[in-house]
Computed example of a mutant assay.
Amino acid sequence: MRQFQQVKELISGKLEKELPARLTYHNLHHTLDVLQAAERIAVEESIPENEKELLLTAALFHDTGFLKKRDGHEAESCNIAQYYLSLHGYTPVEIEQVCGMIMATRIPQSPMDKLGEILCDADLDYLGRDDFFMLSARLFTELKNEAIVKDEEEWNREQAEFMGAHQYFTASQVKLRQPVKERYIELIKSKITNQIFNENQ
């Protein structure tokens, strides 16, 4: 029998203790946030309880790869999931499903089924939420810490491009988050000093 609660406590503790402090966005807060969003979307999309638990398991593990590395962290997350889930009553087929959902969150997102779509939407739920700018600032700090972006101008350009290309997959998220996300894209574009960028979008 699957031991989801035990796994949740174990992985939450591991993320809290072992993730480096420079990860100001990809931390336990983000994982719990995605878990909560996945649960809400699953209810809105009428996902059966048995499948919902597998979805929440994938949400829990989707960024555990950051414990080891940033690039290719999704595949690392799968390795970690395979190890712990096999010890906590998950079948090989269920573990494969969980890994399929985790791999779907790679950018650009590529879900192969409904559960994958929900996890992808939960992972980027914040793009259309009230706390977007706060979480975006945390991600900017993290990327600056790792020398991935150099300044706010570059960050705003990347965000505008990323958010413009992004799409929500589930009907409930398109309705709830898309209009707000569109508004944020315009706000970000208005901060970009090079007007050529704005005219080309």
Rank of each mutant, 00 (worst) to 15 (best):
N79T: 08
L85Q: 03
E74T: 13
C120I: 13
Q109T: 15
G72C: 11
H73L: 04
T105I: 13
I80P: 00
R106T: 08
L124A: 08
G164P: 01
L87H: 06
S86W: 01
G116V: 06
D125F: 13
A104K: 06
L127R: 08
Y84S: 01
D113R: 12
K150V: 14
H73Q: 04
T91N: 06
P92Q: 07
G100V: 04
L135P: 00
N156K: 15
E96M: 10
E96P: 01
G164Q: 00
D121F: 04
M103Y: 02
Q109F: 10
D131E: 12
S110D: 10
F169G: 04
F169N: 12
G128V: 09
I102W: 06
N156F: 10
A137Q: 08
S172T: 13
E146I: 11
Y83H: 14
E76H: 06
G89L: 02
D123C: 10
C99D: 03
H166F: 15
K69S: 10
T141A: 09
L135E: 02
T141G: 00
P108C: 03
V93F: 09
D151A: 11
L85P: 01
D130L: 12
M163P: 00
E76T: 14
A165E: 07
H166G: 03
L127C: 05
C99I: 07
V93Q: 11
H88S: 04
V98Q: 04
D131T: 13
F133R: 09
V98G: 04
A160N: 03
S77H: 05
E161R: 15
D131M: 08
R70A: 13
T170C: 12
Q159C: 12
E74R: 15
L115K: 10
T170G: 01
A171K: 13
W155I: 05
Y168D: 03
E161C: 07
C78M: 04
A165D: 11
C99P: 05
D71R: 15
G128D: 00
P108F: 08
H73S: 05
I80G: 01
F140T: 05
H166P: 00
A75L: 08
G116F: 02
L139F: 08
N145S: 11
E154W: 07
Q173L: 14
V93K: 14
E154M: 14
G116N: 01
W155C: 05
K150E: 06
F169E: 02
H88K: 09
L87T: 05
L127H: 05
A81C: 01
E158H: 13
N79H: 09
K69V: 08
D125E: 11
P108M: 11
R129E: 07
M134C: 08
E152F: 11
A122F: 01
D151C: 12
L87E: 09
L124R: 11
M112T: 15
S136F: 03
I102N: 03
S77Y: 00
H88M: 13
N79Y: 00
T141I: 10
A147C: 10
H88V: 07
R157C: 09
E74S: 10
T91A: 06
F132E: 02
P92T: 04
C120M: 03
Y126N: 02
G116S: 05
E146W: 14
D131W: 01
